[in-house]
Design a protein around this nucleic acid. Structure first.
Lengths: 226, 226
DNA sequence: CAAATTAGTTAGGACTCCTAGTATTCGCGC
DNA sequence: GCGCGAATACTAGGAGTCCTAACTAATTTG
């Protein structure tokens, strides 16, 4: 349907603008040293992950080539924000860890009010949930198209049960933590994420999609599934 | 409240990942010439705008410096996709226009199924509307923080009346086209957008935000027919 | 009309990202 | 044990993006 295509274009355009904005703002971080986007992403990832990560893992989740990541690691190491140590289990690999200095920089990046997180201040819980929900679907679609395979989203995790009933406002269920939860609690970088079988994911996605209808009760005859 | 901060962090992280993904995919566009992200953004903008645009306008909307844009324009002109001509009204300025070749390239970028637009295929009208709605709020917040001043969104337009009543599912009203519409019809790059007074915008935002509450609990059906 | 402002370009530098090519290590079959 | 292909990370070289500063040319202002 052409009408719908136009809306998709608008949404794509909007997402594109947001993306540009996100990049730009990472640059001109008001505080301190204005560190570049990729570098801040690496720091945040290392801070978020409890354990040390291997270089290859980071590259994969970020969706950049190993060579490209190596550039950024060099810069980060030069600042003494991370350390590179050989992996005891695999002589080829490298384990990345934050230094104390690096950790404090990473923490500052997640300060509420600063940077990207600050942009979210205008969003209520409803909208926050909607954003996370849409993010899950978009990332899933990107994975389907082979554009990404890094992100650790709920949708696509073996512990995730979309729309499994449960309490009102908490339709999902996570088998790992054993609790029901709603859209605002969806994760995009869950440490416990464990990829499910493609077939199972597909079912999960279908259940997940159906939720939009449930949420707008009086009957959205708005089906659009090209 | 810390709980909400965590959710904002997740949302920020998700948006960040999406942004990275968007960049990456623009790069490795499957079709033909794998043109870089900024260049494709310029082409799409010129294609979208009916008239010719001035270099400064493009730079502002894209949120890049004039110098940076000049780099990209040089590349685009070298490909014979755009032409630069002196503005008859202002000898300092330059007017940009797509060449025939450039237009066909631009059209290909908006092909449904390709690129970013293709990612939207997994989203129903509900979710599409939610994404556009959130985009409006995030862009507004970014503008507030001085991170952007380019985007031509409904929120912030003098013709826009958020939550003005109207039919069910079409709570908004645009004074320019004189019609009611819903979230899925929100625009992020409207050609007719005309910035409203800051005070008026603030009121508009407040009305707009309230909508999330109205929609969630026992909300109305979501009808949308452009 | 001179001075300040504005639009756009060039110059130089930093960061990101890619493809290739290289060295080291791991797993496996023999 | 030994070699061979695969995997991991790094280096080199090149393109694109983006910035600040310095510059030219045209416009506006006092």
């Amino acid at each position: 349907m052409a009408t719908n295509d136009f809306q998709r274009q608008q949404a794509a355009s909007g997402l594109d603008q947001l993306a540009a904005l996100v990049r730009a703002q990472s640059w001109k971080q008001d505080g301190t040293p204005s560190l570049p986007p990729t570098q801040s992403a690496v720091l945040r990832m290392l801070d978020g992950a409890g354990a040390t990560l291997r270089a290859g893992q980071v590259a994969e989740r970020l969706g950049v080539s190993a060579a490209s990541l190596s550039d950024s690691l060099k810069a980060l190491e030069a600042q003494a924000w991370i350390s590179r140590q050989p992996d005891p289990d695999d002589g080829r690999a490298v384990r990345l860890a934050l230094t104390r200095k690096g950790r404090s920089v990473a923490r500052r990046l997640n300060d509420p009010g600063r940077g990207l997180v600050g942009l979210m201040s205008g969003l209520g819980e409803q909208d926050l949930g909607a954003l996370l929900r849409v993010t899950q679907l978009l990332v899933y679609e990107a994975q389907q198209q082979g554009l990404a395979n890094g992100p650790r989203t709920c949708l696509g995790c073996r512990h995730f049960q979309a729309n499994a009933g449960g309490e009102a406002g908490k339709p999902h269920f996570c088998g790992f933590i054993g609790k029901a939860f709603g859209d605002p609690e969806l994760r995009v970088d869950c440490g416990e994420q464990s990829p499910a079988e493609p077939g199972a994911v597909q079912e999960s996605v279908m259940r997940f999609r159906r939720m939009a209808d449930l949420r707008a009760p009086a009957g959205g005859p708005q089906k659009a599934t090209p």
